[in-house]
């Protein structure tokens, strides 16, 4: 039995495949979805989506968003951004993350929108690094 996984971004559908298992970065921690899961809605934080397609684990970095596990074996993920491991330049992204973290450390002002943007940027960079590393392990 399989699940239908679809990942949709403002730029269109990026993943639309049959999978046997999905792991998603929920706001309260990673959760796995197998066939027969109850209808479920969760907010997602930037992280790595892992899915088992044709016996092979695949990874995708996503930004924040939400996931809907429907009753009809369908997993729908809506997210603002995504990156495939193959498109991620590890060195470049690590530099970006270090830069953002330095800015965060030096932050002395109020916790405004700009601060939140730095946090989001750092989380997104971390997500891409994780996806890249996870995919090179196998």
């Amino acid at each position: 039995m399989s699940l239908h996984l679809e990942i949709v971004t403002p730029k269109g559908s990026v993943v639309d495949v049959e999978v046997s298992e999905v792991a998603l970065p929920g706001k309260l921690g990673e959760f796995g979805v197998l066939d027969g899961h109850i209808p479920f809605l969760s907010a997602l934080k930037p992280g790595v989506v892992r899915y088992l397609e044709g016996g092979e684990w695949k990874q995708l970095a996503i930004g924040s968003g939400y996931a809907e596990v429907g009753a009809s074996r369908k997993v729908l993920v809506l997210t603002q951004s995504h990156a495939r491991p193959g498109e991620i330049d590890l060195g470049e992204t690590e530099k970006e993350l270090a830069d953002l973290e330095a800015q965060l450390k030096a932050w002395s002002g109020e916790l405004t929108v700009e601060h939140q943007e730095l946090l989001d940027g750092a989380a997104w960079a971390q997500a891409r690094i994780d996806a890249r590393k996870a995919s090179s392990h196998n």
Binding site: P10, G26, K27, L28, F31, I38, P39, F40, L41, S42, A43, S64, G65, Y66, E68, G70, A71, L78, Q80
Partner: peptide
């Protein structure tokens, strides 16, 4: 269908509303 919500409806709503405003402007 009645979904199970995580963390809860309020938080979920707060996450998706800005996303919606973004995409509407886009």
């Amino acid at each position: 269908i009645d979904f199970v919500y995580e963390p809860d409806k309020q938080t979920l709503l707060e996450t998706v509303m800005p996303m919606y405003v973004h995409v509407e402007v886009y």
